[in-house]
Design a protein around this nucleic acid. Sequence first.
DNA 1: CAATAAACTTAAGCATGCTTAAGTATATTA
DNA 2: TAATATACTTAAGCATGCTTAAGTTTATTG
Lengths: 228, 228
Amino acid sequence: MLKFIVTMITISKEDYLKEIYALSLFTDEPVSTSKIAEKLNITNAATSDMAKKLSALDLLSYEKYKGVKLTEKGRTIALNTIRRHRLWETFLIKTLGLNWGEVHDEAEVLEHQTSEFLMDRIDQFLNFPEFDPHGDPIPTKEGLMPVLPEVVCLTEAEIGKTYIIQKVDHDNKEVMDYFTKLGIELYSEIALEDRMKFDNSVFVSINNIRHTFSQQVASKLFVVNKNI
Amino acid sequence: MLKFIVTMITISKEDYLKEIYALSLFTDEPVSTSKIAEKLNITNAATSDMAKKLSALDLLSYEKYKGVKLTEKGRTIALNTIRRHRLWETFLIKTLGLNWGEVHDEAEVLEHQTSEFLMDRIDQFLNFPEFDPHGDPIPTKEGLMPVLPEVVCLTEAEIGKTYIIQKVDHDNKEVMDYFTKLGIELYSEIALEDRMKFDNSVFVSINNIRHTFSQQVASKLFVVNKNI
DNA sequence: CAATAAACTTAAGCATGCTTAAGTATATTA
DNA sequence: TAATATACTTAAGCATGCTTAAGTTTATTG
Ligand SMILES: [Mn+2]
Ligand SMILES: [Mn+2]
Ligand SMILES: [Mn+2]
Ligand SMILES: [Mn+2]
């Protein structure tokens, strides 16, 4: 039972805030507890509990049966955690030569364990990058999010056009390793040749080699028009 | 109350094992729970509890009122944690140019959060170093500890002789920052000019500059004879 | 619009790792 | 060697963050 003594930011709380931020990105609606639970792979009950705790900390507003919404305070913590995550990913790729599929899981834990001092040194070492190796914007220390070029998901792109890969959803390692095996990188040129109505599979050409992606795989890639 | 369902290695457990390893280094006697508690800055009660859990996991042997002793299994985990700690310290200094007083606290948390994959890549990047920037040996992946040259603590060194700094106890950041301010580094030359009987203060000369260290400060430095 | 289904919350409980307070064993010393 | 001090352990309890099971609210639909 919840006894309403709520104190510090913990690893769990940072992960909740980060996930809520992500789920809020394209909507103004409150985020449902069940959606959060699904993403974090825990039960709804745990999320309801945590919603109360985070609400008591003024990190989000929570209306029972309606969902949660980050406060400015909560958003700041989410952005800072995302900043640490993306700086770590960039740093590991730059220094150790890891590939873009190898860094997410490491960053997922390192993001919670780094002092501001160390983060600043990493930021400086990387020369204050605006985007990480997956094309995601890195929030500044002040909590400002660099603006990403207007991207379109490959599932929504126009047949016959040639695009540049601008961003990749990299949460699934298997898919990332698949992309790596095919030689696909950030800023690779990709021509969308056709789309199958049956299941929305796409036929693309990258480095003059043809590939077929299921809709699910295609949905990981975000592109911009080549000729802009 | 302890209910004897003991399962996984956690951050806490790694820290206990590491500390017990350190306290066992120069003795064959079992380590007392109170000594561990003092070092980890927790109560004796907590340590007694944990001793039972670690014993149930076969990571140490524990005799009530007598203390604990690591098993081979426990020693392996301790060495692996120390390995991660020291590789992180070396890596942060090498890549980010941190100084030797700035890395310990970061490593203290990073050591628990790194996959074997990442550790291997860091090890490889550093070209499999045998010693860290404080002169401490880095256990190999196989759990072998490189042999440190025979060192003597500056508090035990001979007056009139010139030495090389071979190892520094770096647990206290204030002292480390002091050494850094004085320009003292690993392998610096240090001449022991005199020692005051009253409090065992030492008078030394480093880079032709004289310094006075209290016994407590001097006890952080370990040296070898210059002419060997 | 009432019955039912789906979504969500509350309650109870467990695991981990601490704490303080009380109890027991070992060491000291008169 | 018995009293006393010190060291150590046990007991009870708390905080965090989960779980399952039961209860409540909101949405769906016949
Ligand atoms: Mn990531
Ligand atoms: Mn995380
Ligand atoms: Mn260290
Ligand atoms: Mn540690």
